[in-house]
Simulated assay, not measured.
Amino acid sequence: MSADDGRIRHDWVVDEIAALLGAPLLDLVGRAQAVHRQHHDPNAVQRASLLSIKTGGCPENCAYCPQSAHHREVDLTRERLMRPEAVLRLAETARAAGATRFCMGAAWREVRDGPAFDAVVEMVEGVDALGLEACVTLGMLKPHHAERLARAGLKAYNHNLDTSPEFYSRIVTTRTYEDRLETLAAVRAAGIDLCCGGIIGMGESLRDRASLLQVLAGFDPHPESVPINALVPVAGTPLAGRREVDALDLVRMVAAARLTMPKARVRLSAGRAALGRDAQILCFLAGANSIFYGDTLLTTPNAGIGEDADLLAAIGPLADKAPAFAAAAS
């Protein structure tokens, strides 16, 4: 079965995906664009807004993350969980700026029952009532947490795998790959969409990148949203000395994600601020059809709304109607 026929597969092997990542760039992008057009409106780019609702002090030791309590030299102001009414005001602002999904992130290791989780549920209910897709990232959770979030109207839960199973212990040691998979299983069982991707540029090999995509493409169904992040090196974290990811490596990762998960939204996420306009457009051509829209991604810089408005105007007219198109094509 060809990688280019647009069929939904869950039996990808790492060697196949590594071959995609190593293919001639123009050939790879052309193949990915053809599959993209089978399942998506090529002019539809979803705009998602991301807000840190509780910042810093996370007990996990993820090497890339400035919010980890283990990285004490990071210049970051810790902030308590925001009040629901403040979050909903910002959600209204994001909607007015053109966002259709509102994502809320709390620097927690795991969800715990109590007033803080009650407040997050209230936020989800409010965002849903505004007509926005509500998404949260709260760390690990149990099935009853996922079920409660689903009843509140949660559209998607973000829980990235970060990297390959083989490279993972070089990046995180305070939780296992299996812990992440258990959370994803609980989310899926509750009927919530998966938002699950990874990060490149942390010192992993091309084969590690292929292995990450193989795990994601092995999910049945595939994640509805696949964020492709490029490492943003932050002073004080163990990965502060890493060089910026080559833009074309990001293009290749987007294209391989599109070929292996044809119906997923592939989201250009962290690291996009370092890309020029032309590189971002090449990512769209390779199959990306969603961006985080706003000046900050949790705690790292993002392209400004004005810059994004200019970018989207340059490639427009755009329509944020990918779900309806995908449903009609399926």
Rank of each mutant, 00 (worst) to 15 (best):
L250D: 11
A190H: 02
M140I: 03
C195R: 14
P233T: 09
G126F: 14
E204V: 00
E147A: 08
T260K: 13
E244I: 00
E224K: 15
T260R: 13
E147L: 02
V232E: 00
P221W: 11
I171F: 05
T137S: 11
I228G: 01
D208S: 03
R151G: 00
L161N: 00
I200V: 11
D249G: 03
K155M: 00
L239K: 05
N160R: 05
R258Y: 06
L248V: 14
L213D: 01
R209S: 04
L181V: 09
A247M: 06
I199R: 03
L231S: 04
A134H: 07
V127I: 12
S211W: 02
L154F: 14
R258K: 15
P221D: 06
P165T: 02
E166R: 12
V234R: 02
L248Q: 11
E182C: 00
C135W: 08
C135N: 03
V136I: 11
V172H: 04
V226S: 05
R151L: 07
D249V: 10
V251W: 06
T173A: 06
M202V: 10
A264D: 14
V245A: 09
A257G: 15
R258L: 01
H222Q: 02
T260L: 14
N229Q: 09
P233S: 09
G198L: 11
L154K: 15
P238I: 06
C195Q: 08
N160W: 05
A235G: 06
G236F: 15
Y177Q: 01
E204F: 07
G197V: 09
D246R: 14
P223C: 03
G236C: 10
F167K: 07
L213G: 01
D193A: 04
L141E: 02
V124E: 04
